[in-house]
């Protein structure tokens, strides 16, 4: 337990360092855009005087280290990156107002993806190199290759337009309608990461399948189903938890794209709008918030896995 605490301290310190680096990089990105943000807000006819005045108001006339200091101070004290370049509203409130829809899709998609990937991995691993494994291999290839926005379009056509099971676009009002409007976006977003999860899970299951304790369990006459449920899945579950963390980053980006197909007013929608408006503060804010979310979730899964897996808790390497 003491070694776990020490290892956790190291992991937390590392996560803090990565978070700082994330903020600095995101700040660098926003510095590459400010001139255009001024033009976006003022139009091309503004005089130099108004331009300078606005630059001063937004703090763009100060040296970069002073701006970075302000950003860090804002983040630490308010969890905010500052006012939007375009409408002056707090970027934090703009993001949190829309985070509910985006996070719901992400969580729902992750649940769907884990269930689907587990089922696929169990079938392929227990039928290794036989026809179900081959068929699923092609299905997973298709899952990687299919553009999410195109799949979303086809799902809308089938389930919303023809079958009328789900709304065509937008968010429903009221809890039931709201959840119903998130089903297709979540399924669409999930498809992109199912192959990534399923492939790693299959490899892990195969590894456990050939482990001595499983061979021994089989030799004692335990049924395949019992071996699967009691020995295989629990042993593959911890590595799977790590996979959730590592695939979260890809899923968040995928959800942004999916939002544009289903016209969900989420963070992705805010991102696209900010790119059009050249709103560098909002773009920076979204980049920082999503990256920090990824860092925190990865840290938490790392800590939990190390707590539950004594082999790792004893200081084994995890990269």
């Amino acid at each position: 337990m003491r070694s776990w605490a020490r290892a956790s301290g190291r992991l937390i310190a590392y996560a803090v360092a990565v978070t700082l680096a994330v903020v600095v990089l995101a700040f660098g990105l926003s510095r590459a855009m400010p001139g255009s943000a001024l033009s976006a807000q003022l139009g091309s006819h503004a005089t130099d005087a108004t331009r300078q005045q606005l630059a001063a108001q937004l703090g763009l006339d100060r040296p970069w280290w002073s701006q970075l200091g302000t950003l860090l101070r804002n983040l630490i004290t308010h969890g905010d990156v500052g006012p939007s370049m375009v409408n002056g509203e707090s970027v934090r409130s703009a993001i949190t107002a829309r985070a509910g829809a985006t996070l719901s899709i992400v969580v729902l998609a992750m649940l769907i993806a884990v269930l689907l990937a587990t089922a696929i991995a169990v079938v392929s691993a227990t039928h290794q190199n036989r026809w179900p494994d081959h068929v699923l291999r092609v299905v997973l290839s298709a899952g990687i290759a299919v553009p999410a926005f195109w799949l979303g379009l086809l799902l809308v056509l089938l389930f919303s337009v023809h079958l009328r099971w789900f709304p065509v676009a937008g968010l429903g009002t009221g809890p039931a309608a709201w959840l119903r409007s998130l089903v297709l976006p979540a399924v669409t977003a999930a498809v992109g990461i199912v192959p990534l999860l399923a492939r790693s899970l299959r490899a892990q299951l195969l590894e456990v399948l050939h482990a001595d304790f499983v061979v021994a369990a089989r030799a004692t006459g335990l049924s395949s189903r019992r071996i699967l449920l009691r020995h295989l899945i629990p042993n593959a579950a911890l590595p799977a938890l790590t996979l959730v963390g590592t695939n979260l980053a890809y899923l968040i980006g995928g959800t942004f794209v999916v939002e544009s197909v289903f016209t969900i007013p989420g963070v992705g929608d805010l991102m696209f709008r900010s790119i059009t408006n050249r709103d560098s503060t909002t773009i920076t804010g979204i980049v920082i918030y999503t990256a920090v979310l990824v860092v925190v979730v990865n840290l938490l899964t790392d800590l939990v896995v190390r707590l539950l897996d004594p082999r790792l808790a004893r200081g084994g390497a995890a990269l």
Binding site: V18, A21, V22, L25, A249, S280, I286, V287, A291, V295
Partner: peptide, 21 residues
């Protein structure tokens, strides 16, 4: 450290931000 930092950014989010620049 640089690898871990770059991997913290969601792929499409950072690509979109870079395209904005």
């Amino acid at each position: 450290f640089v690898i871990d930092t770059v991997m913290a950014f969601p792929f499409y989010v950072i690509v979109l931000a870079l395209v904005a620049v």
